[in-house]
Design a protein around this nucleic acid. Structure first.
Lengths: 348, 348
DNA sequence: CTGTTAGCGCTTTCAT
DNA sequence: ATGAAAGCGCTAACAG
């Protein structure tokens, strides 16, 4: 660990007290210009770097923020983290990122570790598996400021920042309908979180607005917990759809992983997109344009979600005393129409 | 910050001393079974969670590792981070990730912050911009264990873990030659780091082994610092190549970003891959199969690089006293041949 | 303007 | 088997 010089070392070298050094380095009005200069000169020369742990221990705060996400190796998550990092760095907070891998157990382990590390606040996008939020609620009651981002739940009352998933799903479905698709399947995750339900509801609303009745056989959920299992579920779902007497003519997929993998899988299984089946889904991949075929997507403002969530959390941390009205912010998604939904299927 | 109960609170409640509580919770042999049980029961009931800062301050180590990467929003980096996280979590180290955004100045700011945070060791993949490593060297001399990963340099003597970039580049170039391509261009980054030079050398070696003389007009470097600038440079490079009297018939691209963007760009500019131009490059995207055309790639064992780097660092941390022989480990890359290099160009 | 002192929460001798 | 006390590096009253 850190074995650079300490305040005491400087104090001894300069024949001053540690508190004088501390004040000088913190540019206190109590200290004379002369002394300040001398201290700062010595400190820089000897590469003094303050010990954050000592400072944190003393001050009861650490200027660090814990971030819990499902996975680091996820394009969409990475973009949100980038946004969080931007704001945190600007406001000189350090972020500590941990991954739940979609497991509630691991999520709790992460939170414990973060909490014991003395974070000033928590930014969390819960694991798909998580249904019981009492753990988080307890932490909140014991005074830890927190903001939910991306994946939200009604079970906790705090600031929440995510995309307008209902609208995004509605737009996607409506786009398919407007392009002449009639039998629209929906593939989503097996979670109870809002990302899943909101998207399902948006899908249903669009159908109903267009007088298309919701057909439960066109709805399948995939296990999101395990990457391998996801592929299996996806393949099974597609096989199932296509073996139906009336197979769907389009699929609307609910998450980044599902969308891109679905495209790969459809290609692999030999289906032609969009002739056999149109495809549109939530994903933020920059490669949508270069895919085969280029992929129509619902794009979420990931970076902005991260930024806003971090801002909200920091404001919460810095006005811990005051009463605040918690907000739930839903940022607009964007529909990007490309080739995967362009061909109107042969009439029937 | 953390305002859970402390050892003192437990001590008072149980009419014991803090040191007894500390020992009990750390399962010391000095403490009787009865007492231990009582203490542990109380601690769990009241959700005692130790203060890492206090512990770290006392013990002179924090069980945390600093990680500096160029960017979070980068597929390849994310995979390495995942590997680092796996090992760290297993060995109960916490990781603190920071991004340099390819700027040396920001890199130093990150390192300072990490160092002052009391990290036990540093894992770093330097910014493209970084050429002067004296800063890191000083830190190392002052006792901070560090491991370089992915982007290596001879200027620092420590454990280093990366891919065998020379071999990867050699394989890619050789593959192109074997498939009948003769005028092979190389697009890389404008950095002095080994990732760039090793790949260039592998490319040159393959050419020379096949009696093809290296043509400097077929070599272009892109500014990697800025995402927008990269696109410009790329577009300019392609325009330049294609306006040559003898334009290249294949491109070998050196990094994840360059490779995928190059594909997008070639499509956008209306070139047909691989008829007009073959393309193969370093990238770890899972979407290579689903691209248009499916993309031949050099795949790096990113997760393993992360894992190994973390293991090396932790071993360094935990045997800080002993003398060690530093190793440089180069993991095998993998060539994945797909459609973007499949068609032999029309003879000439 | 500068110094003394106490204490953040924890571990760790050293007594008892 | 348990406790008292010191101290990690820092800041913040409070004196001087």
């Amino acid at each position: 660990m850190n074995n650079s010089i300490t305040l005491r070392d400087i104090a001894r070298a300069l024949n001053l007290s540690t508190s004088t050094i501390s004040k000088a380095l913190n540019d206190s009005y109590e200290i004379g210009e002369e002394t300040k200069k001398k201290v700062i000169a010595y400190a820089t020369e000897h590469h003094y770097v303050p010990n954050r742990m000592a400072k944190g221990l003393k001050q009861g705060k650490s200027r660090s923020i814990g971030v819990v996400v499902c996975s680091l190796d996820n394009n969409f998550v990475a973009q949100m983290l980038d946004g969080i990092d931007k704001v945190s760095t600007d406001k000189s907070y350090q972020i500590i990122i941990m991954q739940s891998k979609e497991s509630q157990k691991q999520e709790i382990a992460c939170i414990d570790l973060l909490y014991s590390g003395g974070i000033d606040g928590l930014l969390i996008s819960p694991a798909c598996e998580t249904t019981d939020f009492s753990y988080l609620k307890n932490l909140q009651e014991s005074g830890l400021p927190m903001v939910l981002f991306d994946r939200l739940t009604d079970q906790i009352d705090t600031h929440k920042v995510g995309a307008d998933n209902f609208k995004g799903a509605y737009d996607a479905t409506m786009h398919l309908i407007n392009n002449g698709y009639k039998r629209i399947a929906h593939l989503n995750t097996n979670t109870k979180l809002s990302i899943s339900t909101d998207r399902l509801n948006g899908y249903k609303q669009a159908l109903s607005d267009q007088m298309i009745s919701f057909n439960p056989t066109y709805l399948r959920s995939c296990d999101y917990t395990d990457s391998h299992k996801l592929n299996e579920d996806l393949e099974e779902a597609i096989q199932y759809y296509m073996s139906l007497p009336e197979p769907p003519d389009a699929i609307f997929t609910a998450t980044d992983q599902i969308t891109t993998r679905c495209l790969s899988l459809l290609n692999k299984l030999g289906y032609h997109i969009p002739k056999d089946l149109a495809l549109i889904g939530f994903t933020n991949t920059e490669l949508a344009d270069a895919m085969n075929p280029s992929l129509s997507t619902i794009h979420q403002p990931a970076f902005e979600i991260g930024q806003l969530a971090a801002e909200k959390l920091i404001s919460l941390i810095e006005q811990k005393h005051k009463e605040v009205d918690f907000e739930t912010i839903k940022l607009e998604t964007q529909i990007l129409v490309r080739a995967s939904t362009q061909t109107v299927p042969t009439s029937n």
